[in-house]
């Protein structure tokens, strides 16, 4: 098994790097999109619930189906894979961002407003820091979820560890299956442990 790794290190690490890149790109775009959507949702609890419900419905669609639906529009490869992964993340991120923001005590918002904070200052100086633990928890979840779903994305030619796994399945190559699995678990684990540390530091 280790000799297999030594022999095919280039291919395995290449796929690992590709996978990391997909996860990273997805995360970057997801967080920006979720932040923008959340900012506009701050003023209306009704709209928040509606948007979260829509994204939870999206989240429940099997990834294969969603990929298949988008291929005619966006084609094969990352062009389809990343938008789908970003869409899945919105549920995890927006739900956590909004619940963090809504849990901030109303009296602090009143005190802040009453002292002359603008809406933006209230959000960035009071709500956001207090919601941070919940937001980081959402990011942690979304990394783990993206790592998993990105494996499936290999079936529409998006590359990454899924490529190794799928070809391993096709040719019944146990080494490929094992290494594909181990490496994707490593990504999820690193992200999980790293962000847990970050969460602890934020909570102090």
């Amino acid at each position: 098994m280790f000799s297999y790794f030594a022999k095919h290190a280039d291919m395995l690490l290449g796929a690992f790097a590709e996978h990391l890149l997909i996860v990273f790109e997805t995360l970057f775009l997801s967080v920006i999109l979720a932040a923008v959507i959340s900012y506009f949702l701050l003023k209306s609890e009704k709209a928040t619930n509606m948007v979260i419900q829509i994204f939870s419905a999206v989240y429940s669609i099997p990834s294969m189906a969603l990929f298949a639906m988008l291929i005619p529009l966006l084609g094969l490869g990352n062009a389809t894979a990343i938008p789908v992964l970003v869409a899945y993340n919105q549920y995890l991120l927006i739900r956590n961002i909004m619940s963090g923001m809504q849990q901030v005590d109303k009296s602090m918002l009143e005190a802040g407003t009453g002292m002359g904070m603008s809406h933006w200052q209230l959000v960035t100086r009071v709500q956001l820091p207090l919601a941070m633990p919940s937001i980081v928890a959402g990011i942690r979840l979304s990394i783990v979820s993206t790592t998993g779903i990105a494996v499936i994305a290999a079936s529409i030619n998006a590359g990454g560890l899924g490529k190794i796994l799928l070809s391993g399945l096709r040719t019944m190559n146990v080494n490929k299956i094992l290494w594909g699995t181990i490496l994707s678990v490593i990504i999820a684990l690193i992200a999980d442990v790293g962000l847990r540390q970050l969460e602890k530091r934020i909570r102090r």
């Binding site: 005590d105 009296s107 602090m108 918002l109 005190a111 207090l130």
Partner: peptide
């Protein structure tokens, strides 16, 4: 205000 509202 009564609830004080200090930022924790």
């Amino acid at each position: 205000i009564q609830q004080i509202g200090l930022f924790p």
